[in-house]
Amino acid sequence: MSAIFHNVSLAWYFAWSDMRARYKRSVLGPFWLVLGTGIGVVGLGLVWSVLLNTERSEFIPALTVGLVLWQAISGAITGSTTVFARSASVIKNIKTPSWRISLELVFQQTVNLIHNFVVIVFVLLVYPQDIGFAALLVIPGLVLVFMNIFWIAQVLGFVGARYRDFDPLVSALMPILFFLSPVLYQSRQLGSLDVISKLNPIAYWIEIVRNPLLGSVPALSDYLVVVAMTIAGFLLATWMTRARGHRLPYWI
């Protein structure tokens, strides 16, 4: 138990120190990231609100939350396929539980998301939403999303370490996944194509984080699906780590 705690705090500390190192020699520091997100929101918001013929005050807040969340999700997924290879010198030389390496990736995305929250707060000030205490549901929502990102990073990390061509495959699929996920639109706008969002796990994650921030309570069924996904995913990741974890040093 104390070993788990030690490794979790290690992953958190490493994620922070990486963040610091990455932006050490730049003026804006991690706020380059925030600036990037801000530019994305403004650009996409202006163009797509016209293209989709929707009200900006309604579209831009939804887009912002969706985009920030998408960055965390896609960052973790594309990073996960090479996460173990990038830490090869640690894995091959120091006894390291593999999950600590993927948790570090998840924490890096958490740190990024915390920074990007500045953009969300800013947009919500410009376009105030009718939010009350239901907004607090964003916290359990984010916890669930990051738990899912964690098992996915671990599983994809293993596949990516074993099969070298998995990384380009995942990178190629990400743009499609972006359009299949309700980032630029909301699931209810899909109409008869609604089945897409019913089958896409990312759609559920976005729902349980975005809805509270826009003033509505997510459906209980959305939570149930995400909780079930989390449990199934953790079982899969645990099984994979137990069965194949010891082979990791040979793969990378």
């Binding site: 120190s17 990486d18 190192a21 010198s89 640690v90 091959k92 030389n93 120091i94 006894k95």
Partner: peptide, 16 residues
């Protein structure tokens, strides 16, 4: 408690 010195600078992060 085990400590190891394997290879040159194994585990060092060059940017830090």
């Amino acid at each position: 408690r085990v400590s190891t010195v394997f290879g040159l600078g194994a585990g060092l992060v060059p940017e830090l």
